[in-house]
Design a protein around this nucleic acid. Structure first.
Lengths: 276, 276
DNA sequence: AACTCGCGCTTGTCTGGACAGGTTCAACGC
DNA sequence: GCGTTGAACCTGTCCAGACAAGCGCGAGTT
């Protein structure tokens, strides 16, 4: 989490001493050693300042090497950044072309294998506590966000870190009873939703997660080893098919301090690389 | 600890011949030189063959250099490819982690104007409780995830629904003191990060959110109208520039039952939305 | 048992150099 | 005028080495 590089100045010193040469020919202003990130930022400022119009070609790599007093690799890295953000397009042999001066102001969070995060985060193991069939009645149906009266296969897991004793949390997983047969024996090396996809021929179209604070019920308190009433993170995950039907619902209960959910959103214009 | 890492048999040949000499000689020689694309392809085949499970660590760059007889740059380029395709996640200091063996299986959450959800979610209003300058000391620095000793402008908001009495939650917003001047008077119709972008010339590259459970301190309990110690949802949001510097940190505290965070992930393609 | 600290391992960033292969454009031949 | 060709220009790929910075684990402490 730390970002000690306040000015990134000590960075500069080291390299100055090390590789010297650098920028001796450059016009005076290129004194400061800058990294590819700063270089990218400087270029973006230039772009926003209107130095080039959309469709124009940016300076060649060689010119940027001169101007910033950095190596070609560094210049290329910054151009790669600009391309990833959607400002420019690159093509071998031709100079970079400015294609946008303000790439879509949207952020993207891309997740592979949802629920890895919820069920298998690498250094955790899950132990099945109970397997039962339930009918969603009033209160429970509301808690799950499903239709009252529907039938579900319920799986209770306790999640524990590989090293350490205190459990991370409890997971209740509800599988639509109509697909429970297809599930059969459960492969613990795959997520439930993946197995449903593979064996029941379902396709998850979207996943909805909601997160809120709650408290530990007496029943949960024992396996979680916390006091009843202590604060929990409640994570509900719904897996929804293209037909709009909820095929699986997961409820995760995580005591404070043991589990943290992290989401990273990245600004993206043209997610793709090079070529065209 | 280390994975014995199986398989990848035929690559041994190339390695045998050893590298260096490279294409200076005619293309007639025995084995092709492996490029980063082929290397990526080979790795994908290994992945699909099940040599590693999701969550496992791939070989280190050094090991791949050995195996393929290529330079580290080339190996890194191929790993970059795999990361872009969604097979692996990379983190400085730690080995690459396999996160998907079939990246068509990726879900995307895209959102315009993050932080709307933290500051202005349409049907809520924010009232500024306090504005102060603070220095992040030990404990607070850890809580914020910033460098100890750094200086910040702190803004305290109470968020209340348009209709209704009970407050939704408290927001502490910390703005890097170096950019606080640029902020000047705050336009309540825009998010803070947008104003920082426009007035301080910063570019937000990515946003990191972490969510966990916590408890209400006595100081929070009063304005939130809950009992001290009652469960809260703690949402931390970091706005990070392309230089990798944290320019704004937001801490949201939401009592149980009053606020729920919602995330919708959609499989490849279509846009989606987050929260409300 | 939980916490801190240090050290080794691993990835991130950067340098400087080389060749391959695509692009561009002007000179040339028809 | 028009298509071809070649050379200059430019980006793509690759190499070898170095230091910076983050991570993980074990040892020692509380």
């Amino acid at each position: 989490m730390q970002k000690p590089e306040i000015g990134s100045s000590e960075h500069a010193l080291v390299h100055e001493v090390d590789t010297c040469v650098r920028a001796t020919t450059a016009p005076g202003w290129a004194d400061r050693v800058i990294g590819y990130r700063e270089m990218a930022e400087a270029l973006i400022l230039d772009i926003k300042a209107g130095n080039w119009r959309i469709g124009d070609a940016l300076p060649t790599e060689a010119e940027l090497v001169q101007r910033f007093g950095a190596s070609r690799s560094t210049v290329r890295e910054s151009l790669r950044e600009l391309a990833a953000m959607g400002y420019i397009k690159r093509r071998q042999g031709a100079r970079s072309i400015l294609v946008a001066d303000d790439p879509t102001d949207s952020f993207v969070n891309s997740v592979q294998s949802i629920g890895e995060l919820l069920q298998y985060s690498g250094r955790t193991r899950s132990t099945l506590l109970a397997r039962s069939e339930v009918v969603a009645t009033g209160d429970m149906a509301r808690r799950l966000g499903v239709v009252a009266g529907s039938r579900w296969l319920r799986l209770d897991y306790l999640r524990t870190p590989m090293r350490g004793q205190l459990p991370l949390g409890l997971s209740e997983i509800y599988v639509d009873a109509r697909h429970a047969d297809a599930l059969g024996t459960i492969d613990d090396s795959l997520t439930i939703y993946r197995q449903l996809e593979q064996r029941a021929g379902l396709v998850v179209r979207r996943v909805e997660q909601s997160i809120e604070a709650s408290t530990a019920t007496p029943a949960m308190a024992a396996p979680l080893r916390v006091a009843p009433g202590s604060p929990l993170l409640l994570v509900r995950t719904e897996f929804i098919t293209s037909a709009g039907e909820v095929m699986e619902v997961g409820l995760g209960h995580f005591p404070a301090g043991r589990y943290r959910m992290e989401i990273m959103l990245q600004r993206s214009g043209g997610a793709s690389d090079i070529d065209g």
